[in-house]
Design a protein around this nucleic acid. Structure first.
Ligand SMILES: NC(=O)c1ccc[n+]([C@@H]2O[C@H](COP(=O)([O-])OP(=O)(O)OC[C@H]3O[C@@H](n4cnc5c(N)ncnc54)[C@H](O)[C@@H]3O)[C@@H](O)[C@H]2O)c1
Ligand SMILES: NC(=O)c1ccc[n+]([C@@H]2O[C@H](COP(=O)([O-])OP(=O)(O)OC[C@H]3O[C@@H](n4cnc5c(N)ncnc54)[C@H](O)[C@@H]3O)[C@@H](O)[C@H]2O)c1
Lengths: 209, 209
DNA sequence: ATCATATTGTGAATCAACTCACGACTTATT
DNA sequence: AATAAGTCGTGAGTTGATTCACAATATGAT
């Protein structure tokens, strides 16, 4: 199952490539070069060729890559044929925004259920996603493996623990808490305050590189 | 103005350190070691010492770092004494969530104004932030240097250009568009679909590293 | 067929970041 | 005063990722 040793940096770019290739396809383009891709996704063309090369020789010299073929390949690699269901915990400002958004547009990923502790929210439905009582997490979660965490930072740790106990393996964490997680669970942090502050810092201290 | 050659990776961690130090301070702690910090922010202690060392010798051997002193130092370094005003463009699901959120809690950063094209939204106020007509961007923007971009991807490029023309230097871009930006403007991409898909990919292909 | 042009795939060089491991120094203890 | 314990700051080694640059090969035009 484990692809052999794709660099992590490469793995993070795959969804980006995939999305752009779908674009090309819908425009009826059948051929693309690393240079062209590079302009579109803003990644150096050599990096793109290197990225693709980890999967074998996908292109043809002097020609480029066949969009259809590449796309088929990525579809398999990114498991696009399988529907991935994720849970969202914390239906506040941010959580609700995610519920309104259709991740399926680009992905095979769908928010299948949501949880909250607020009686006002429990039992409601947002964009077709039911909001359950967080107390029923263990009962409802089923075998969902990925969760989006948008609860207040103060309960991030406790919530993570409950999720992990239910077999969740990956969490996209939007709280500023640096979660004290069980070792076997993968957590990606997206810390918007930090991103904003870092951007400001860069502007000030690294003038137009 | 430009601090000499702080690695970018370090610069991105500064806000994280800063936030945790404020925590310590509010708990009345006056002393902290790199080891302790490491546990809290989940960054290797050697990396923390290295990070701090770019700014000179901030600590004392055998003792650690003085919280108050460190904090004062970071406050200056991160320009926390100056209030940074940013603009938000696109008051949709995501944009509205940001408006509701108080970035000032951890930062000196404040969303000062918002823009949208929807007549329903123009003229309203969300959490004290006025929503202007995007047509009035040039008139209202004043000398704001940073923008949060939460418009539909289709207008990301055009909007960026207008922002750049008004002197905006940095954009936090939440649209999936890989913006074709003027060279002198700094863009940080936060692509939530990509993050989610990458997380799923990692779970599948890099089982508990 | 031949030639000019395009573009891949990759070895090698470079760059950036992280981590180890230890000497130097501080503080606390006896 | 001497010793033990703790912690920094950093040289050196390592790891990971990017980029250069070019031989190999395919295409398309004549
Ligand atoms: N909104 C933003 O722009 C923004 C920006 C940066 C960071 N964040 C972080 O994202 C997280 C969510 O932010 P938000 O603005 O949506 O906050 P919010 O307060 O609007 O939403 C939090 C939601 O979690 C629910 N909740 C509380 N305790 C819970 C529990 N134990 N189990 C399940 N649900 C629970 C609340 O009822 C609420 O609906 C916070 O940690 C915040 O710091 C948000
Ligand atoms: N909501 C999410 O969870 C989510 C997730 C991933 C990516 N995104 C991306 O973030 C962006 C915003 O998402 P959203 O869900 O908030 O969309 P949305 O449609 O709710 O909001 C977009 C807002 O932009 C406004 N707008 C349209 N054209 C404009 C223009 N020319 N100038 C100014 N404002 C304009 C619209 O009136 C609307 O209020 C999109 O690009 C989307 O792909 C959102």
């Amino acid at each position: 199952m484990t692809q052999n040793k794709i660099p992590q940096a490469t793995a993070k770019r795959l969804p980006l490539y995939y999305r752009y290739l779908r674009n090309l396809q819908s425009q009826g383009k059948s051929r693309v070069s690393s240079k062209e891709l590079s302009d579109a996704v803003k990644v150096d063309s050599a990096t793109i060729r290197r990225d693709f090369s980890y999967f074998g020789a996908l292109g043809k010299k002097g020609y480029g890559y066949n969009v259809e073929y590449l796309l088929g390949f990525f579809r398999k690699t990114l498991d696009q044929d399988e529907l991935i269901e994720v849970a969202l915990v914390g239906v506040g400002n941010l959580g609700a925004a995610f519920l309104h958004y259709n991740f399926m547009k680009n992905n095979n990923i769908k928010i299948a259920m949501a949880f909250d502790s607020d009686p006002e929210k429990i039992g409601t439905e947002i964009s077709g996603v039911h909001v359950y009582n967080i107390d029923d997490l263990e009962e409802k979660l089923d075998d969902i493996k990925v969760a989006i965490l948008t609860v207040p930072a103060s309960v991030a740790d406790a919530t993570t623990e409950r999720l992990a106990d239910q077999g969740v393996e990956g969490i996209l964490n939007f709280t500023p808490a640096r979660i004290n997680a069980p070792k076997h669970i993968r957590i990606h942090h997206i810390d918007l305050s930090v991103e904003l502050q870092a951007l400001v810092y860069f502007l000030k201290h690294y003038p137009l590189v």
